[in-house]
């Protein structure tokens, strides 16, 4: 019953969710902020694709790169303009600010573009499939898996081998001590937001690719997925986010496969039931961090 194309599709969904979750948790790790404006970064990348395809005849890859950069720039700007001024006030202030930024960006999209869905260009390979061991596998799924593995490897290298990466890890371990070693708080936080935007941007390419369109509220679902995945995996670690993303994606795919037809509409309910069970037995998530939570003051 579990075929190769199912496996690849499940793993690709997990990969996509892992990317989405990682972008959310990189900021959470350092600021202890669940950035509710995170989904809007995915929206921004989607609209960038839509706008670029309307005004230019650039190759898709170029448009995709610009879209990812747009998400990174938006993420950086939200940190600079919205979060930095309230950062030292309170966590609640930051949380409410993130709601405000989310609403603001969504409404900007409604006003400037349209409340209705807008088409986004897709590369031709997204519609193609290849035969692997007799199975028809969409190229898009393979692309998601390959890009995720590459990005995770690159990101791991960045975190382990560069001083900036060490500073990021140190900051999510103990932010105050990191500053006391001369690492600028603004630098670490900005870098975290830019990386968060990068993951949102890349995830967006595949996310908007599923419906080939973008709407102002497109960020809602991935935000929820990222949040649930990080809760499953454990909010305190980047590994947890990745594991949570894969668990979510694979379990969700299994539910789609195993549930009888008349229950398929209730996939989400079953999914959350499983999440509740996981949390009952592992309240800290699947991956436990070895450090105690601490907040940036």
């Amino acid at each position: 019953m579990i075929t190769l194309d199912f496996l690849i599709s499940a793993i690709s969904l997990g990969s996509l969710y892992a990317l989405i979750a990682l972008g959310l948790v990189i900021v959470y790790g350092i600021l202890k902020l669940v950035n509710f404006a995170y989904g809007e970064l995915i929206m921004i990348a989607g609209y960038t694709l839509f706008v670029l395809s309307g005004f230019s005849s650039l190759a898709w890859l170029i448009m995709a790169i610009v879209a990812v950069i747009a998400a990174m720039a938006t993420s950086y700007m939200t940190e600079l303009v919205a979060f930095r001024p309230v950062r030292t006030k309170s966590l609640t202030a930051m949380l409410i600010t993130s709601f405000a930024v989310s609403t603001l960006l969504q409404n900007a999209a409604v006003l400037i573009i349209s409340p209705r869905a807008r088409p986004v260009p897709l590369p031709e390979v997204f519609d193609q499939s290849v035969h692997i061991f007799g199975a028809d596998v969409p190229v898009r799924n393979i692309l998601i898996i390959v890009s995720t593995v590459l990005l995770l490897a690159l990101f791991t290298l960045l975190l382990r081998k560069t001083v900036l990466g060490m500073a990021l890890r140190a900051a999510s371990d103990n932010f105050r001590m990191t500053r006391m070693l001369g690492v600028s708080a603004n630098l670490v936080i900005s870098v975290a937001f830019v990386i968060s935007g990068f993951f949102a941007g890349v995830a967006s390419l595949f996310w908007v690719g599923r419906a080939a369109s973008v709407t102002p509220t497109i960020g809602g679902a991935p935000l929820l997925i990222a949040f649930v995945a990080t809760v499953i995996g454990g909010m305190r670690s980047l590994e947890g986010a990745v594991v949570g993303g894969y668990v979510y994606g694979i379990v969700y795919s299994l539910l789609s496969l195993l549930l009888p037809q008349y229950l398929l509409d209730y996939r989400e309910a079953f999914m959350f039931l499983i999440v509740i069970l996981i949390l009952l037995f592992r309240p800290e998530g699947l991956i436990r961090a070895n450090v105690t939570p601490e907040r940036v003051g």
């Binding site: 890890r169 140190a170 103990n174 105050r176 001590m177 006391m180």
Partner: peptide, 11 residues
């Protein structure tokens, strides 16, 4: 002391 517990001694 505030050693970074999840980082190596070298880091």
């Amino acid at each position: 002391r505030d050693i970074f517990g999840s980082l190596t001694v070298e880091e």
